[in-house]
Design a protein around this nucleic acid. Structure first.
Lengths: 211, 211
DNA sequence: TTGTACGCGTTATCAG
DNA sequence: CTGATAACGCGTACAA
């Protein structure tokens, strides 16, 4: 049994138009007469035709893929983050290439998956990237975004909450309740998130104690 | 600024070999002399060349992509499942195209992402697929696997635990402890998982009570 | 508005 | 073992 993929070429033949016309029908914004458009869509539907994203990505050099790397498999928060990213990106016509890292640092191997599939951008959540890899990605012109983590030395985009402000608020609350000496129990030390939280907490108390 | 992708062609030129030779170097099992292999690899490394998975997938008709659909963003169990699948699949050279469904049933739109990227198989976790879509996928020759859920009417592969046995064991335990009348608190009713669990629990007690 | 011809980067095929 | 050439399915100048 032969697996014959339905291509734009086949649709074109059955609809008595050229392949480029079929292509235009499936590319928003291209000018096609309403009449031929309906004719093509009808045939395409019958044949269950869908444009091949691989071929499209190859010719346009836009894969419509976003690489998403994630480390933590315990923290449920990140699962929700993944879901939200995926959902939102779909609205913009992007699909998610998911990569899971066991190690603390993302490895070359994982990044290779991204590069080979020509992802248009990379989102890194809850993991670290060596400056070496960032450099390689820069030279490949692939933007990198850090989520909930940042690193001044890497200079790439990042979005995260203001953890210093957050723990300052917590500290303030305790302080006003009359607790002057508090213990801070932290998560992993090597993340900007936890460093900031500790910093904010300490900062507030040291300021108050000076007065 | 022009974004020039390093292609096998470019590597070939710099290494004084044909483009097909470069291709062979990056295809395990193809015969290339050790000498030229090293020569090519050296140039490829300098140029930071990586084969383009889109082009490869196009010609081989093997995208090396597995579609993974998931619904539940609350249950941390499924996050771990995702991580494990991703990790294991990578070992076999596959990457994961992740799709998140808000709805109970997977929609045509989500399946389209899979078809367009020519995924080689689809794994569905914690969600339902209409028999209509299954039929379409069958005709596209894309295998579907259900994880932790099954459906006799759909006849596609599935892997899940023996929930009937599991709750029978629980029931047995309670019974032997002397608790003869128990309340079963269930999850969502419309899943095979919860149906089986309830069934096993009930079954055990009704058998015992007959005696 | 539509068709022709070419190219994207790769693997497959066939000669040599 | 190696090279030339076709094909994969699509988008896009260019011409009509």
């Amino acid at each position: 049994m032969k697996k014959k993929n339905v291509s734009a070429e086949l649709v074109a033949k059955k609809a008595n138009v050229s392949q480029s016309t079929v292509s235009r029908v499936f590319t928003p914004g291209k000018s096609v007469s309403e009449e031929t458009k309906q004719k093509v869509l009808k045939v395409a539907n019958e044949l269950n035709y869908k444009p091949n994203a691989l071929a499209r990505g190859l010719i346009t050099n836009k894969s419509k893929l976003i690489g998403l790397a994630m480390k933590n498999k315990q923290n449920p928060f990140y699962h929700e983050v993944l879901a939200l990213f995926t959902q939102k990106l779909k609205q913009f016509g992007y699909s998610v290439l998911f990569v899971y890292t066991e190690n603390e640092e993302i490895q070359q191997e994982e990044i290779n998956q991204f590069i080979e599939f020509n992802v248009e951008a990379i989102i890194i959540t809850d993991a670290v990237l060596s400056s070496d890899l960032v450099k390689k990605l820069k030279s490949s012109n692939i933007p990198v975004m850090l989520f909930n983590r940042y690193d001044e030395t890497l200079n790439c985009n990042s979005v995260s909450s203001d953890n210093i402000f957050a723990t300052r608020s917590v500290a303030e609350y305790f302080y006003n309740q009359g607790y002057k000496h508090n213990l801070y129990v932290s998560g992993q030390h090597n993340t900007s998130t936890n460093r900031d939280r500790l910093y904010g907490f300490r900062q507030y108390f040291s300021e108050k104690n000076k007065i």
